[in-house]
Design a protein around this nucleic acid. Structure first.
Length: 714
RNA sequence: GGUGGCAUAGCUCAGCUGGAUAGAGCACCUGCCUUCUAAGCAGGCGGUCCUAGGUUCGAAUCCUAGUGCCAUCACCA
C-alpha cells in the first residue's frame, strides 16, 4: 500500500471517529513550494459532508494523522489546506527500495490482450517529410509507452503502395528518365544525379516530373483554346453566325465540359442538391430559361455568375492557390483544377496505367514492383536513421479488396443498405453523423471498405488482439469516427478498444505543407540539418577530446535527433505544431539536448565516484536530515511509474517528456547547490551518488520511451 | 451553413480528475566557472488565461452563447 492510500484510509477513519460520517473521497495535491509540507489535503470538499470550520477540521485530521501514521512527522493548516510534512525516513526507505530496480517504473508482466499500434503508413510515391516524422515519432513512442505500462504491443503500418499516385511516378519515369550507356533508363543505382541515389527521392523526383508535364499540358490546352476561341469569333464576324456554341472544336469542347462539370459540382455543394437533381431542372444549362421568380432559380443565377467570374481567374499557370486569400475563390479554383485535370492527356495515361495494374498486366505490375522496391529501400534508410521499427507491414495492394465480403455480410444483416444505383451505404444519422458510402455502385471498394477489411484481417492475424491504435492526422477524425462505429455495429469484440491517435498538423510559417507545391520539409534533410547544428555547437564547446571522428559523428546524430524528437514529442499530440525552419530547434532550456546533457553530467560523476560507493547505511542516514533538494528529487522519482501509466492512458508522450524535464531541472538545481563527491559524510556522499545514478537511469528509461538515446559524454 | 478541434507572457509551450498569489523555456536585464561538464545554476522583467453570461465555498479548467484560426462534411485516398 502506498503512502497516499494509507493517508486516505486514515483520514476517512479520522473523520468517521470524530464526526461519524463516511467520506467518499479525499483530495490530495502536492504542497506548493511556498508552504511547509509535502502533501496537502484539501478540506473544502469535505464540508459537504462535515459541517464546521475548515481550519478546525484540518487541525483535527492533522492531529489524528500525526498520532497514527509513522510517516507523518508534522502538519500545518492554512485556510482550508492541511499541509502534511512527511518524515525523511519515509523517503529514504522509498529510495532504498527502488534504487537497484533496473526496470523501475515499468510494468513488466504483460497483459494477455495485445494492442496493435499503426503509424507512418506513407504513400510510396514520394519521400517522407516533417508531417510523417510527427506521425512516426508519436506512434513509435506511444507503442513503447504502452509496452512499458504493461501491455503487449504490435507495431505496424499500412503501406499505401497502390493507386493513381504511384502510377504517376511510373509513367513519368517511363517517359522522361534518361537512358544510360547500358541502353536502360536510369535507376537509383545508375543515376548521375547525386540527390536521387536514395530510392524514395528518386521516385519522388519523377512524381514531380509528372506534375511538371501535367502543368505544361494544361497550359498548352489553355493557350490553344484561347487561340481557337479567337478564331471562332473571327469566323463568326465574317459569317455573321454567332451560334458557335455548337462548334466541334475538340480542345474547346473538352475544356467546356470540364468547366461545366466543375460548375455542377460547385452548385450541388452550395445548394446541397445532388447533381442529378440539379440537371433535371430544365433551366439549369441556360440562364434564359430560368424563371427568376423562384427563389432557388435566383440563387442559381447568382452562384453561376460568381462561379464564372472567379473561374476566369483560372490562368492555368503554376498553382498559386495557396496565395488566394478569398476562401470562395480558392474553393472554386480547386474544383476547376480537379475537373480540368481529367482532360489532360498525361492524366488519362496515368489512369490507363492504373486500369492495367488492376487488371494484372504483367509489364505494369513488374514496373510497379520495381519502383516500389526502390522506395522501400529509401524508407528503410530513413526509418533506420530515425531509430524506429515495425513488427509487421501491411500493404494496401494486399488489403484493398478486403472488406467487400464483410459489406455483403452486413448488407444481409441489415447494417448497410443498398441504393437504387447499387451503391451500398450506412445510415449513421442516429449517431448524429451522416450517411456514408461503403461500396461504390460499380461494386468497387472505397477507402472505408478497405479499412474495415484491414481491421478484421489484423484481428485474424493476431488472435490475441484487444484493441488498435491508429496514428493518423486529425483531418481524418470523421473517417475514424465512422470506421469505429461501423466495426462496432458489425459486432466485433475489440471494436470498443479502438483509438484514433489524432494529432495536429505540422504547419510552416508559410502555411500548410503541400508536397505538390514543393513546400515540404524533407525528413532526411531535416535530420541532417539537426546533426550539423549539433556538431557546430559541440565543436564550439569543445568538450570531446579523446573522441574519434566516428564517435563524434554518432554523438552529433544522437543530439541532433534528440533535439528534433523532443521538440515534437513535448507538445500535446492534439495541438498543431508551428515549425519554423529558419529559427531551427533550440538546444537550450526545455529541450532534448538539455536533458541529454544532464545525463552525461551524471555519467561523469559516476565515472569519478569510487567503486565502493554503492551502499549506504540507511539507519545512520535516518539520524541526519535530508537536504531539501534530495527530498525533492526523491519525490520526483516517485512520480515516474504513475507518469508512465498516465501517458499510456492518454496516449501522450508529451506527459512523459514534461515529467523528464521537471526531473532533470530538479537535478541540475541539486547538482549546483549540493556537493556530491565533495561531501564529507560517507553515507551522505553515497546516497547522493546513488541518487544521481537513479536519476540517470530514469532519464534513460523515459527517453527510451520517447525513442531518444542518451550519451555518456557531450 | 452543419459537425469537430484549438485559443494561457512578445515567441514556443506546461497547467493531472475544478483548489492557495496561473508555471517553464526562448528573447531581454543582473549575478555565478581556481571545487563533480556553464548545452548549466540563482534572480529580475513580462498575464484582460479570446469575449460575455452561468454553475459553486472556489473556474484557465465545467455549462451556454459569441468571436477568431484550423480541419471536415465527395461513388478522393
Amino acid at each position: 500500500m502506498n503512502l497516499k492510500e494509507v493517508l486516505r484510509n486514515t483520514i476517512k477513519e479520522a473523520v468517521k471517529s470524530t464526526y461519524e460520517v463516511e467520506l467518499p473521497e479525499v483530495e490530495f495535491q502536492p504542497t506548493r513550494k511556498d508552504f511547509e509540507g509535502d502533501i496537502t489535503v484539501v478540506v473544502f470538499p469535505m464540508l459537504r459532508y462535515v459541517k464546521g470550520n475548515p481550519v478546525q477540521i484540518g487541525q483535527q485530521i492533522g492531529t489524528y494523522l500525526e498520532k497514527t501514521v509513522d510517516a507523518v512527522s508534522s502538519f500545518n493548516v492554512v485556510k482550508g489546506f492541511l499541509n502534511i510534512v512527511i518524515d525523511d525516513s519515509f523517503y529514504l526507505d522509498f529510495f532504498n527500495g527502488i534504487k537497484d530496480r533496473a526496470d523501475y517504473g515499468y510494468v513488466t508482466n504483460a497483459s494477455s490482450e495485445a494492442i496493435l499500434v499503426e503509424y507512418s503508413s506513407p504513400n510510396t510515391n514520394k519521400p517522407l517529410h516533417l508531417g510523417h516524422i510527427r506521425n512516426i515519432l508519436l506512434g513509435y513512442s506511444v507503442a513503447e509507452i504502452l509496452k512499458a505500462s504493461g501491455k503487449k504491443v504490435y507495431k505496424t503500418q499500412i503501406v499505401n503502395d497502390r493507386g493513381i499516385h504511384i502510377c504517376k511516378s511510373m509513367l513519368a519515369w517511363q517517359r522522361f528518365a534518361p537512358i544510360g550507356n547500358d541502353d536502360k533508363r536510369e535507376t537509383p543505382n545508375t543515376t548521375l544525379n547525386p540527390h536521387l541515389t536514395k530510392g524514395d527521392k528518386f521516385v519522388g523526383y519523377y512524381y514531380v516530373q509528372y506534375n511538371k508535364e501535367y502543368k505544361r499540358q494544361l497550359k498548352k490546352i489553355s493557350e490553344n483554346a484561347q487561340i481557337e476561341f479567337k478564331e471562332l469569333v473571327e469566323e463568326a464576324k465574317i459569317s455573321g453566325k454567332w451560334d458557335f456554341i455548337n462548334h466541334e472544336n475538340p480542345n474547346l469542347l473538352r475544356l467546356q465540359k470540364a468547366f461545366q462539370s466543375a460548375m455542377t459540382e460547385y452548385l450541388s455543394v452550395e445548394l446541397d442538391m445532388n447533381p442529378s437533381e440539379l440537371k433535371t431542372k430544365d433551366n439549369y444549362i441556360s440562364d434564359f430559361t430560368l424563371t427568376e421568380n423562384s427563389k432557388q432559380d435566383q440563387e442559381i443565377l447568382e452562384l453561376k455568375s460568381r462561379f464564372r467570374g472567379i473561374s476566369k481567374k483560372f490562368n492555368f499557370i503554376e498553382g498559386n492557390i495557396k496565395n488566394l486569400s478569398n476562401k470562395e475563390e480558392k474553393k472554386i479554383i480547386q474544383i476547376c483544377l480537379k475537373h480540368i485535370e481529367q482532360v489532360v492527356e498525361i492524366f488519362e495515361s496515368a489512369k490507363e496505367m492504373l486500369r492495367k495494374w488492376e487488371a494484372g498486366n504483367t509489364e505494369v505490375v513488374a514496373l510497379w514492383k520495381k519502383m516500389n522496391q526502390w522506395v522501400y529501400d529509401g524508407f528503410d534508410v530513413t526509418y533506420n536513421n530515425l531509430g524506429v521499427d515495425f513488427d509487421k507491414l501491411y500493404y494496401e495492394s494486399d488489403t484493398y479488396l478486403l472488406g467487400k465480403d464483410v459489406v455483403a455480410d452486413g448488407l444481409e444483416k441489415g447494417i448497410f443498405y443498398k441504393k437504387d444505383d447499387g451503391s451500398v451505404w450506412i445510415d449513421l444519422t442516429d449517431e448524429g453523423l451522416d450517411e456514408k458510402i461503403v461500396l461504390r455502385s460499380d461494386g468497387t471498394a472505397v477507402y472505408m471498405t478497405q479499412d474495415i477489411g484491414t481491421a478484421i484481417q489484423r484481428a485474424k492475424d493476431y488472435t490475441d488482439i484487444g484493441g488498435m491504435v491508429y496514428t493518423v492526422g486529425n483531418e481524418q477524425d470523421y473517417h475514424f469516427k465512422v470506421l469505429f462505429l461501423i466495426l462496432k455495429k458489425l459486432g466485433f469484440s475489440w471494436a470498443d478498444s479502438l483509438y484514433h491517435l489524432s494529432y495536429g498538423m505540422v504547419d510552416l510559417p508559410s502555411g500548410k505543407m503541400k508536397s505538390r507545391e514543393g513546400t515540404v520539409v524533407d525528413a532526411d534533410d531535416l535530420m541532417e540539418d539537426m546533426t550539423t547544428t549539433a556538431a557546430n555547437i559541440s565543436e564550439e564547446l569543445g568538450k570531446l577530446e579523446g573522441y574519434s571522428e566516428t564517435e563524434k559523428l554518432g554523438l552529433y546524430q544522437m543530439i541532433g535527433l534528440g533535439a528534433l524528437k523532443y521538440y515534437i514529442l513535448k507538445v500535446d499530440p492534439k495541438k498543431r505544431i508551428l515549425f519554423n525552419p529558419e529559427e531551427s530547434v533550440d538546444f537550450q532550456g526545455n529541450t532534448g539536448p538539455f536533458i541529454q546533457y544532464t545525463y552525461a553530467r551524471i555519467q561523469s560523476i559516476l565515472r569519478k565516484a569510487e567503486a565502493g560507493e554503492q551502499e549506504f547505511d540507511i539507519e545512520s542516514l535516518k539520524s541526519l536530515r535530508l537536504h531539501e533538494k534530495e527530498k525533492e528529487l526523491i519525490k520526483q522519482l516517485q512520480l515516474f511509474p504513475e507518469t508512465i501509466q498516465l501517458a499510456a492512458e492518454n496516449y501522450s508522450p508529451a506527459l512523459l517528456a514534461n515529467y523528464t524535464y521537471d526531473l532533470v531541472k530538479e537535478f541540475n538545481s541539486f547538482y549546483q547547490q549540493v556537493s556530491i563527491l565533495g561531501e564529507l559524510n560517507q553515507d551522505k556522499k553515497v546516497l547522493r551518488v546513488q541518487l544521481s545514478k537513479k536519476v540517470g537511469e530514469v532519464v534513460q528509461s523515459a527517453f527510451k520511451l520517447l525513442g531518444i538515446e542518451v550519451p555518456d559524454r557531450m
